[in-house]
Every structure is written in C-alpha cells, then in structure tokens.
Design a protein around this nucleic acid. Sequence first.
DNA 1: ACCTGAACACCGTTCAAGT
DNA 2: ACCTGAACACCGTTCAAGT
Lengths: 244, 244
Amino acid sequence: MSPDASPRSRRERPAKRALSREAIVDAALAIVREEGIDALTMRHLAQALDTGPASLYVYVANRDELWDLVFDAAIGSIETEPTDPARWREQLHALAGRMVSLMVVEYPGMARLAMAHIPVGDNALRVSESILSLLKAGGVGDQAAAYAADLLSMYVTAIAYEQSLYAQLYADPEHEQREVARITQRFAAISPERFPTLAALGDKLTTGDGEERFSLGLDVLVNGLLATPTEGRLTRTAWGEPGS
Amino acid sequence: MSPDASPRSRRERPAKRALSREAIVDAALAIVREEGIDALTMRHLAQALDTGPASLYVYVANRDELWDLVFDAAIGSIETEPTDPARWREQLHALAGRMVSLMVVEYPGMARLAMAHIPVGDNALRVSESILSLLKAGGVGDQAAAYAADLLSMYVTAIAYEQSLYAQLYADPEHEQREVARITQRFAAISPERFPTLAALGDKLTTGDGEERFSLGLDVLVNGLLATPTEGRLTRTAWGEPGS
DNA sequence: ACCTGAACACCGTTCAAGT
DNA sequence: ACCTGAACACCGTTCAAGT
C-alpha cells in the first residue's frame, strides 16, 4: 500500500518472502487450521509457500521433525495459569479440555502429531509442568504424579484422536451412513446367549456424548491415582539415565 | 507331493488359488506378522497373492474394510476364559496384557488398525463381553462398566501403539540414537526456574519400564472406576438409538 | 548457502477391457 | 462374475544442477 521506504529503490513487489523454519511452521499451522491434518503434506505445504517440496528439506530434516515443530507451536496457544490448590481439580479439567479442543476444533486431527513422538518441545514441557503442579496440589504422590503426566497426556491425545475421527466421519454424509450401519450391525450381533453381559447393559453402552465421557474418564483417572499406592511399583528403567 | 486324486485329470500345478475374502485376510495377517503393519498395503498384499491391487477390490470395499477384517481375525487368537469372581482383577490384567502383546509382538504395529474404527467384529465383541463380565464381577456398576469397556480398550490400544513405536524405533540404531538425543535435550531443557515441579521430580519421570507402567495404569483405571460414582453423569446420547 | 526440476520408489482407487 | 493392465492423482525424499 504505502511506498517502499527502504534505501534501495522499490520494486514492483517485495521479493518472495525468504523461507525459514518459522515461515514453514506458520504455513503448516495455517494448513492444519483451515484444512485439517490430512492436508499437511510436504508437497502441499511447499505449494502453499510457492516453492517445491525439496526446498523444505533445507530447514527441516524430514516430515517427523516438521510434525514436532508444528505440534509444539500449536500447543503454544495453550495458556497455563498458576496453580490454585483450592481449585486444582477444576483447573486440571480446564487444561485437559483446552488441549482436546485445540487438537479437535482449532487444529483438526492434530492429535496424530502427538502420537508420532512423545512431545517434548518447550510448550509441551510448560503444559506438563502445569499438570504436575496441579497433581501435586491435589495430594498425588511424587512417583504417581510423574507417571500420571504421561497417562493424562495419553488420555487427552487418545480422546482427541477419536473425536477427530468422528468429526471427520460425520462431515461426510456417505461415510456417516456407513458408520451408523456398522454400529447398528454391532447391536444386532449382540445375542443374549453369546454375550449376556453386553446384552444386559443394552443402551448403557452408548450413553453419554463425547464431553460427558471425557470428563468422567478424567475423574476416573484422577481418583484412581489418589486411590492407588505407587511406592515400589516403578523400579526398572527403560531409558537409562539421560542426564548423566 | 501326492498325486492328484480328483476325477478331472491332473495338471502340472493346481490352478492359482481362487481369491476370496478369507484368503485375502489370511495373506494380510501373514504380512503383518512377518513384516509389521507398515508393510500391509493394498499393493504389497496383492503382490503376495500374486495378483494386481485391483483384484482385491472385488472382495473388499477399501483399505478400511480390510483393516476391520484383519483386526478382528487377529483378535480371534485371544482366548477368553470364564470369569472367576475371586480372580477378576488378575484375569482382567491377563486379558489386557494378552491384547497388548498381540498388537505389539505377534502383529507388530497392529494397534493402528484399532484406532481407525472402534472394533466391533465378532471377536472384538467376545473380548468386550469378557471385560464387562470381569468388571461386573469386581463390583463395578452398570453404567461405569459400560463406559469402562471403551476406556480400557482405549488404554490397551494406546499402550500398544506407543510400545510399537518404540519397538520400531529401537530396531534401527540410527533412529534410536536420534530419539535418545531428543530425550536428552528434553532433560537439558528442564530448568528449575521455569519448570520447578518437573525439575523436582527428576529421575522419577523416567522410572518404570513398559510393563510396570502398563500394569500400574491398569490399576489406576480399575481403582478409579471403583472410586468414581457414575450415576447421572452420562445422560446425553451421541448415537441416537441404533437398535430402534 | 540456498533453491529447485526432475526423478525414484512408492501409495489407494477406478475403470475399461478382457475372460 | 471375476480378473487385470493401465491410468489417475497423489505421497516423502534425494540429488545433481543451478544461482
């Protein structure tokens, strides 16, 4: 709009924005936000940046590294408030819920990125710190809290993944129809002779929408942590001592 | 080996085995068993059956349907014993552990198939029936048990998926090295100022191998179910009434 | 140092033409 | 009815050649 103020004389248009890690990640985030995770391919991303796929490999080792960067950048929009011990459970629910909606609504399907690796970026650590702080405030023991951070991340990711699947399914009437047929067949297959317990539960098997189930599962996990003694249960080591 | 006993005169070789759903699923199971889930592509499967990929589509609508069939066939090798109320917890652990090792060891990476859809094949129903029966024997309420079946399946699948990832990673020394570097960096990034709770937990964050953590998580879930009242918490419905 | 056209070795799925 | 060669529209990644 305004005339170019740089010392060099102006050009018709500014030169193509130089590629950079940041520009690549920003473009990737925009793609996921607008088109969902399936649209995030190296080729499509390159196209969005007006270049060829080979150019991306100057800044990023491979698709996996890109995924790590994109996931952590997205997690950056999660705000972590200071722990209020009186409201730890409420705060934990809010944080977990925020993560799910980030992965399902704002960045549809992004849970898949969290499943490729255990996220350990800066923002992921910040969220872990907050979760651990909340659990400690709730009286969860050290070893249990350390384990629970992974368990809760896994739960949140799995829920988000599942919800994304169904969101995608129900976006397409044809696929939705096929899925409803599958579920209907499932119920038809429950004969009381072969599957007495399933048959006895009946409607209870499908009660509760995503939000209710997510919230109940979170309470189950938290209550389970408070009710399960952990001393002496985790003794072996899978990683060696990375710090030494 | 032995001469052909059929009325029609013998041929040099028996005609190429006719394709069928069963033959396709059997070949697919063999591929996953021997080469892992990544090797299960329509093209590779067709090759194993000595035909072209287009031929498969006569028997199977698409890759998703194949995945459903393959998963349920694999689950078929899980044996479900009658519930013994005195040993319900032990039996539940054994069943869950068996499912994990099926998806990690016998059919490496197969957890991914379970994440594509909620498994509802005949064998999956049989396993669900067994899980529900065990939970009821343990005194879990109806609504909680109905919900817990999904929760436990999700847990088992997520654990198996994660363990498969790491098994794959550690099969390749180069990738293993890269992953260890990632984890080491993670620890280096834990400054006590920014992440006090994480820093305070230290080694506790990485204690416990896969088996110990799986077993602890299972107890957390089961104890959580026993400790969490569910009446009135699941009221809405996400599916409509498939039976009506 | 950065960029890129072209290639390599793959995908799932469809369809017209065969038997 | 079943099978299939060939094509379509994609993938991630590499590499030699350019600037």
